[in-house]
Every structure is written in C-alpha cells, then in structure tokens.
Simulated scan of single mutants.
Amino acid sequence: MKRQFSLAHLTVLGCTPAEMTYIAARAGYDFVSLRPIYMGLPDEPNYALAENKEMLRQTKKALDYTGIKLHDIELARIYDGLDPKKYLPAMEVAAELGACCVLSSIWTSERNFAIERYAELCDLAKPFGMTVDLEFVTWANVTNLKDAMDVLRSANRENCGIMIDTLHFNRSRVALEELDQVPREWFHFAHLCDAPQEIPTTKEDLIHTGRDERLYVGEGGIDIAAILKRMPQIPYSIELPHLANVKELGCAEHAWRCLQTAKDYLDAHLGA
C-alpha cells in the first residue's frame, strides 16, 4: 500500500490554511493537518476557521483546487475547567472539510476529569464520523503511552485513538515493546520528525526542541524505523517545526524537504 503523508500546520505555522494547502500540493503531500482551534500561545496566528468565514472560503477553494484532503485538526486540549463543547464549531468545520480525526492532549492532573472530558470529546466527534486521537506530550500531564492507554481504556469509546509522535515517544523514553500492547484499531495516524540523540533535561529545552527545532527524518538520533515497524501502516503527518530552516529556506522549500527526507528514509529502512 502506498504511504500517505500529511503536512502538519506546526511545520509551517506562519502560513494560512489555504497557503499551506497549496504548498502541500506542490510538494506532493496527500493531506494537510490544520490547526483551526486557537490556543492563544505567544506569537500563534489565529486560524479559527469557524470564526473567519473568508479564511474558511479560501481554505475550501484551496482544497477543491488542489485535490488535497484534510486529514485531522488540532488541538482539542483537555485542561482544568474545560467544557468540550467549546470545540464543537471547529469539529463542525472539520467535518465539512472532510477531516477524519481530532487530535487531543491532556493538560490537567485530575485523572477522572481528564477521562470524563476525553470521553465527552469522543461523543461529540462521533456524529461527524471522526475519531479523537490522544497524543502523549513529554511536558504535559499525560506524558507516556501507558498513561494514554489508561485514559482510552477508561473512557471506553468506539472512536478513540492513540497518536504517536516520534519526538515524544523518544523524549518520554517509551519502550518499543509497549507498542505491541496497543490495539491495532487505535492507530489512525502518526507524527513524524527527528531530533538530536541527547534528550534535554529541562522542560524549557524539551519545549524548545518540540516547537522550534525538530530535525528532518533521518538526520537525528531517533530510531524512527523501529517505532513504525511496530505499528500498522497509517498516514504520517510530518510535524517538523524548525524556525531557522523556515527563515532561511522559506515555507515551501522546508515543507518539500520534510516530505522528501521522510520518503527517502522510509524507503531505505522499511522498503519502497
């Protein structure tokens, strides 16, 4: 089966959804992974499509013109005091644009609250035919595969999922054998990137690598092939922010290099 790739918005966050769709098409991606849930982070552009009808119109036009599909949206964070219905407008737009997955992560220490809100997210997404895929993030509250699986088992929803990011898998020191315990139907897509072999020891340095300086696949110290060999073949969303490379090369060239290096690496290590 032909491998499929998506361009994650964080890779070219300075581009609007329409702009990144055209870039993805020219580079040869199959999908885009959009960020229409505004999180209010420092210097983060607001791409809340449900609130910006002109941006939504332009995004639809780009998807229709290029034939690129929307794969997933992010980020439906679970945090203290969250009402998951807050994400309904973004889900509605995502469904309208053809998305199949909603990415989530957990930023509260209250386990029962997190499980209840994750289950509610799944219930909200189900009528749209979308899964809710939980990502463990090294500097969040659910930081490893074991705890993420505990949330999914406790929530017990048909449309739940686990999203493996190769950076967080490596930084959280997850054992490869743990992937063998994940039900195959929980895998819907994965995030690909590489990073230096040495794992940072501070939260600040972990965040810096994750948001500003990930490496092209095959250029760092993560055994990406070993991770992917223990998972079914699923779409690979390349989430590879590198601010210096974008500044030097431009978004289009950076996105192309992200895809080409990933394809070359996977062909060499997993077979063409």
Rank of each mutant, 00 (worst) to 15 (best):
133 D>C: 15
134 L>W: 01
135 E>V: 12
136 F>G: 08
138 T>Q: 04
138 T>W: 02
140 A>E: 08
140 A>Y: 03
141 N>M: 15
142 V>L: 07
143 T>N: 15
143 T>C: 12
145 L>E: 01
146 K>P: 02
147 D>Y: 00
147 D>V: 04
148 A>H: 02
149 M>L: 14
150 D>I: 09
151 V>I: 13
154 S>D: 15
154 S>V: 12
158 E>F: 07
159 N>H: 04
161 G>Q: 00
164 I>R: 07
166 T>I: 09
168 H>T: 09
169 F>G: 06
169 F>C: 00
170 N>Y: 15
171 R>Q: 01
171 R>S: 03
171 R>K: 10
172 S>I: 06
174 V>I: 15
175 A>H: 11
175 A>W: 05
176 L>T: 10
176 L>E: 01
176 L>I: 12
177 E>F: 06
177 E>D: 13
177 E>N: 15
178 E>N: 05
179 L>N: 08
181 Q>L: 15
181 Q>C: 15
183 P>I: 09
183 P>M: 00
184 R>S: 12
184 R>N: 10
184 R>M: 13
185 E>Q: 14
186 W>R: 10
186 W>S: 10
189 F>A: 10
191 H>E: 07
192 L>N: 07
192 L>W: 00
196 P>I: 06
196 P>G: 07
196 P>W: 03
196 P>N: 09
197 Q>D: 11
197 Q>T: 14
197 Q>F: 14
198 E>A: 13
198 E>N: 11
200 P>R: 00
200 P>W: 04
202 T>Q: 02
203 K>C: 07
205 D>P: 04
206 L>E: 06
207 I>W: 07
209 T>I: 14
210 G>L: 01
210 G>I: 01
212 D>Q: 12
213 E>S: 13
214 R>E: 02
